[in-house]
Lab assay of single mutants.
Amino acid sequence: MDVFMKGLSKAKEGVVAAAEKTKQGVAEAAGKTKEGVLYVGSKTKEGVVHGVATVAEKTKEQVTNVGGAVVTGVTAVAQKTVEGAGSIAAATGFVKKDQLGKNEEGAPQEGILEDMPVDPDNEAYEMPSEEGYQDYEPEA
């Protein structure tokens, strides 16, 4: 019985440690998101679009440190934060509304985080759909 109880105690310690790591990862992701939003706020009209992409990228980098179902929630929060940063930029006159959601080359930025393969159960990952990809044929 002692062996059984000791095993359960060790398992509990492992769960607590994993929860603490997840909590730490979420806190880091939130900190990076805040950094990115402050970065966007300090940019001029020309830099705002690039700044919004930076927020998304920093958040995406930190999301990889967070495991399990938390990833889905962090990704949703990050996307809403990026959308909010863009709205703030438009409201303050840093950028025109028609410039939001495009990178410096004018290509749409939507789907940055949505296409990231995420499995809350950590069982399997699927690649994003290939609808947006084109076949590449090298020139002879």
Rank of each mutant, 00 (worst) to 15 (best):
D2F: 15
A11N: 00
K6Y: 02
D135E: 13
K12G: 02
S42T: 06
G36S: 14
T75G: 06
P108I: 05
G101F: 15
G111N: 14
P138Y: 09
Y39C: 04
E35K: 05
V15I: 13
A27G: 04
Q109G: 03
M116C: 08
E35S: 05
G84F: 15
Q62V: 04
M1S: 00
Y125M: 03
M5G: 01
E131T: 10
E137S: 11
V37N: 00
E61K: 07
A76N: 11
V74L: 15
V52T: 01
V95M: 02
V49W: 15
A90M: 08
E130S: 04
T92V: 11
K58Q: 06
A11S: 02
K80R: 07
Q79S: 10
T22H: 02
E46H: 06
G67K: 05
I112S: 12
P120L: 07
V26F: 15
A69S: 12
V55H: 01
G86S: 13
A17E: 06
T81C: 08
G67R: 13
P108H: 08
K21A: 13
A85V: 11
V95H: 14
D2S: 02
H50D: 06
V3P: 00
T44D: 00
V66C: 09
K12D: 00
D119C: 12
F4I: 06
G25Q: 15
V77L: 14
S42A: 13
V49E: 03
E13C: 05
M127Q: 10
F4Q: 00
K32D: 00
E83S: 09
V70E: 01
E130D: 12
Q109S: 12
G67N: 05
T92P: 04
A78C: 07
P108C: 11
D115Q: 08
G106C: 09
K34D: 00
T81E: 02
Q134N: 08
A27R: 08
E61R: 05
E123N: 10
G73K: 11
Q134F: 08
A56W: 13
E35C: 11
L38C: 10
A29M: 12
A90Q: 14
I112Q: 06
Q109I: 09
K43A: 10
V74K: 01
A30L: 11
E61M: 06
G36M: 14
G84Q: 12
V26R: 00
V77M: 12
A19F: 15
A76K: 10
D2W: 02
T92H: 03
P138V: 08
E110R: 08
T44Y: 14
V16R: 09
V63C: 06
S129Q: 09
E114R: 10
E110G: 07
G14E: 09
V82P: 02
E137L: 06
K97N: 11
G25P: 00
L100G: 10
Q109T: 10
G84P: 02
D135S: 04
E114A: 03
E57T: 06
E35I: 14
G14P: 01
G101N: 02
Q24H: 07
T64D: 05
T59S: 04
S9T: 02
G31L: 11
E83Q: 08
